[in-house]
Amino acid sequence: DIIVVALYDYEAIHHEDLSFQKGDQMVVLEESGEWWKARSLATRKEGYIPSNYVARVDS
């Protein structure tokens, strides 16, 4: 799995977006363009995230 960590807070604009806080970790489910589908490890919610707001966690 690709794990990313939030670099900034993000408040969902559309209902399919995923809100998150700086430091939150998410599993990337699908990478396509600038918006990635991800699942929050904390809340288990899924939605689209702006890929420029996150960084990959080296395992």
Rank of each mutant, 00 (worst) to 15 (best):
E30M: 09
I2P: 07
Q25R: 15
G33R: 05
R39Q: 10
M26S: 00
I2N: 11
V5K: 05
V57A: 08
T43L: 04
S59G: 13
I2A: 09
H15P: 15
L18Y: 02
E34C: 14
E31W: 15
E30R: 07
G33P: 04
I49K: 00
S59C: 12
V4G: 00
D17L: 09
S19L: 02
E16D: 15
R39K: 10
E11H: 12
Q21Y: 10
P50A: 03
D58V: 12
S40R: 06
G23R: 02
R56G: 05
L29N: 03
K22H: 05
Y8P: 00
K37E: 03
H15Q: 13
V4R: 01
N52A: 14
V28D: 00
S32P: 05
S32A: 11
E16V: 08
A38M: 04
G33H: 05
D17N: 11
Y10T: 00
I3L: 11
S32W: 13
I13F: 09
D1L: 15
V4A: 05
D9R: 06
I3S: 03
Y48H: 05
A55E: 12
E30V: 10
Y10S: 02
D1Y: 15
N52W: 15
A38C: 11
K37P: 06
E30S: 10
I49G: 00
L29K: 04
V4K: 00
E30P: 03
V5P: 00
K22T: 08
K22R: 10
G47M: 03
A12I: 02
E16L: 11
W35F: 11
V27Q: 11
A12W: 02
E34N: 13
L29F: 08
I3M: 08
S51W: 10
A42C: 11
E34L: 14
D17R: 09
D58E: 12
S40L: 15
D24C: 04
S40Y: 04
G33F: 04
T43E: 05
L29P: 00
S19W: 04
I49N: 01
I2C: 11
I13Y: 09
V28R: 01
Y53C: 09
E34K: 11
L41W: 05
S59T: 13
V27G: 02
S59Y: 12
V27A: 09
L41M: 10
S51G: 08
L41N: 05
D58Y: 11
D24W: 04
G33V: 04
V57L: 14
L18V: 03
Q25V: 15
Y10V: 02
Q21I: 10
E11T: 14
W36Q: 03
P50H: 08
R39E: 06
S51E: 04
Y48G: 03
A12E: 03
W36A: 05
L18P: 01
W35C: 09
D9S: 09
E30Y: 10
E46G: 03
L18I: 07
S59P: 13
L7P: 00
E46A: 07
W35N: 07
R56Y: 13
N52H: 12
V5C: 07
I2G: 06
W35M: 12
A42G: 08
S32Q: 11
D58G: 12
G47R: 00
M26W: 02
E31Q: 15
Q21P: 02
A55I: 14
A6F: 02
I13C: 12
N52E: 10
V57F: 09
I13D: 08
I49C: 02
K45Q: 12
D9C: 07
A55N: 07
H14R: 14
A6W: 01
I49D: 00
L41Q: 07
L18W: 02
Q21W: 08
W35P: 06
M26Q: 00
D1G: 14
I49P: 01
A12P: 08
Y48T: 05
R44S: 14
N52G: 12
R44E: 11
V4H: 05
V4Q: 01
Y53K: 08
V5N: 02
V28T: 02
L7I: 09
I2H: 12
F20R: 00
D9G: 06
F20W: 00
H15N: 13
G47V: 05
Y8N: 06
Y10D: 00
E46W: 07
G23Q: 03
K45C: 10
I13A: 10
Y8C: 13
G23F: 05
E11R: 10
V5M: 08
E31M: 15
V57G: 05
P50C: 10
D17I: 08
R39N: 03
D58W: 09
S19P: 07
D1V: 14
L18T: 04
Y48K: 09
T43V: 03
S19I: 03
R39Y: 14
S59N: 13
A12H: 02
I3V: 10
Y10F: 13
Y8D: 06
L18S: 00
K37W: 15
N52D: 10
S40K: 10
S51N: 07
D24K: 00
A6V: 03
N52L: 09
I13V: 13
I3W: 08
D9F: 03
I3A: 03
K45W: 05
D58I: 12
I49T: 01
E46S: 09
